[in-house]
Design a protein around this nucleic acid. Structure first.
Lengths: 327, 327
DNA sequence: TGCGTCGGAGACAACGTTGTCGTCGATGGC
DNA sequence: GCCATCGACGACAACGTTGTCTCCGACGCA
């Protein structure tokens, strides 16, 4: 900018005025300045601008587990759309379920002075974000609550959803229903398992603990679990899967086996309707969740005071075939 | 920082030294400063730091068509991984194939002084990025080249891939092969179509222009096209699909029809192997492309001079069934 | 005691902007 | 001809850091 001013033979402030389209510059001078700007390829340094103005940075951080997961990539896109509508930019980071990594990313975002953070929190304590929140960084959780900090939160109705899916299987006459979920320290995994238990209890059917397998959806692990659930003297006749990756891993493993247990997956996925046996799922709405979270964030940024809100997004059962297989 | 200095009764520079772990501060003083920092919840303002140091910002922009598309979300994740390994942060933006939006995002990123940009360019001219490139912003294109600017570029071997897929269908005895691709102003769409034509020409089989349909993968459009291709007096016996979204749209439409033409898709997708008829595809490697692009970017940032590189990533045919259906 | 040295610590400028205020010349009214 | 007014423009400080330089007191040594 200094260079532009020198080259155009005007004062620094005049260039600033031209760049920002402020009044008080003759058209003649403005033209000259613009010419020099184009010639020198000058671009305003937003960092300095923000520093000076002490204003918002017009940027938002998004922290989730894995952008490549379809659930999160849809959520991510929805957040991005809202952020863009507000003229802001989006920083994205995948925590890979590693709380240390998440922490580093979050603090990195904050050091860049993002206006707000949309977070899918890991299960670790997030007290370290309290100073940031206190300093005015808006904070919204989505998909999971944030341990150690009470902030705006958008969750799917995991418990009810898993209960609905399980009840659906019970209605088909299944009694021995296996449950495969993610690691139990993950909020959604625990909630959904609770939903399964609740549906079984409500129907008055006891749960054999050996039907339950919680852990990362590793193909080998899934193979082992399915062999156990389907291969014993009293095999389960139906499976409830706790998330889309588990569902897919199970489908892939089932393709290599004889048994065709009924199956309901939690979370919808592309092509579920086109599989050999179309897959019945409890669908979430990741786009709605992302949009809601982002809008909540901007409402905060626009000064909405109110206490922390907790929003529950409904899930819905989509029967497609796999969940209607009789025992 | 000023506040911390005042509260701790030390000079500004001393706080700076403590924050940055520089030498020249007695342990006693450092402890006191750290205590005040914790108490006040102070975080260094990286904007000011960067401004002062005139150094790199440690941030990279990623500009693609749509984060929610599995191809791009995998590419995105790979880029993120490399960026993280270099201790940088990632800004993401979806252009939605709108060059004006892309331009706004790119300039926004540059105003934030990203060190570099990884871009999946739209087909519009990108001359506006020349000043940025000249100013030292590293620039790498991935998936498509950038019209109007010669920069590092990572592309899939679209032409060869489409040719291989088409040749595969020809080998099964197909002669009337339909081609459904994306809008022809998209580089990859044009290249793949060219590959199809080339394979047909190499095999000495004429192409009827009515077999070719190029456009956005809209369900209704696909329905119309398939009705035409499969319903006429001389229906095509095989289909080559130019991208994953088209493939999925075609599969969905085919599910409601009687005909079972052979089908090869360009770009792999999850569950392709588990469909009623597993889908033969020409697979790309989005993660490899993203990783390569990001690594190229950081090599530039670390001062590798060399002229712009153009890297071609190979594709490979994965026969699964749908491409081996005879005429 | 005098002098050099050394470690700890602060003063100050500068990074690239922008808000505030002042200057300067032209214009208009009396 | 004089003063008030106004528009165009520049000087300067400040945003929150950090690099450089300087200062000060303690210490060792002759």
């Amino acid at each position: 900018m200094k260079d532009v001013a020198a080259a155009a033979g005007v004062g620094l402030k005049t260039v600033s005025r031209v760049v920002n389209g402020e009044a008080g510059v003759s058209e003649e001078t403005a033209r000259r300045v613009r010419a020099v700007i184009d010639q020198l390829g000058f671009r305003r340094n937003d960092g300095a601008r923000l520093l000076r103005q002490g204003a918002r940075t017009g940027s938002v951080g998004l922290l989730l587990e894995d952008v490549a997961d379809p659930f999160y990539s849809q959520l991510s896109r929805a957040v991005e759309e809202v952020v863009r509508a507000h003229g802001a930019l989006l920083l994205t980071g995948s925590s890979a379920e590693d709380s240390e990594r998440e922490r580093a990313l979050a603090l990195g975002f904050c050091a860049r002075r993002v206006d707000g953070l949309v977070v899918v929190p890991t299960s670790a304590d997030h007290g370290y974000l309290a100073p940031e929140a206190a300093a005015g960084t808006a904070l919204v959780c989505v998909d999971r609550p944030m341990p150690g900090l009470d902030v705006d939160t958008v969750l799917a109705d995991n418990r009810a959803g898993a209960a609905i899916g399980t009840a659906h299987l019970l209605r088909q006459g299944h009694r021995r229903i296996g449950y495969l979920g993610d690691a139990p320290d993950i909020f959604t995994a625990a909630e959904r398992l609770a939903g399964y238990r609740q549906a079984m209890a409500d129907a008055g059917h006891p749960v054999d603990e050996s039907w339950i397998a919680m852990g990362r959806p590793d193909p080998l692990e899934v193979r082992f679990v399915l062999a156990r659930l389907l291969g014993g003297p009293e095999p389960v006749t139906a499976l409830m899967c706790g998330n889309n990756r588990t569902t897919v891993a199970v489908l892939r493993e089932l393709a290599g086996r004889q048994e065709r247990p009924a199956l309901v997956g939690f979370d919808d996925f592309e092509l579920a309707d086109l599989l050999a046996v179309p897959v019945t799922v409890v669908a979430q709405d990741p786009a709605l969740m992302g949009r809601t979270a982002a809008e909540l964030l901007f409402r905060r940024l626009h000064g909405e005071p109110a206490p922390a809100q907790h929003i529950l997004v409904r899930t819905r059962l989509i029967p497609r075939g796999s969940g209607e297989i009789p025992p």
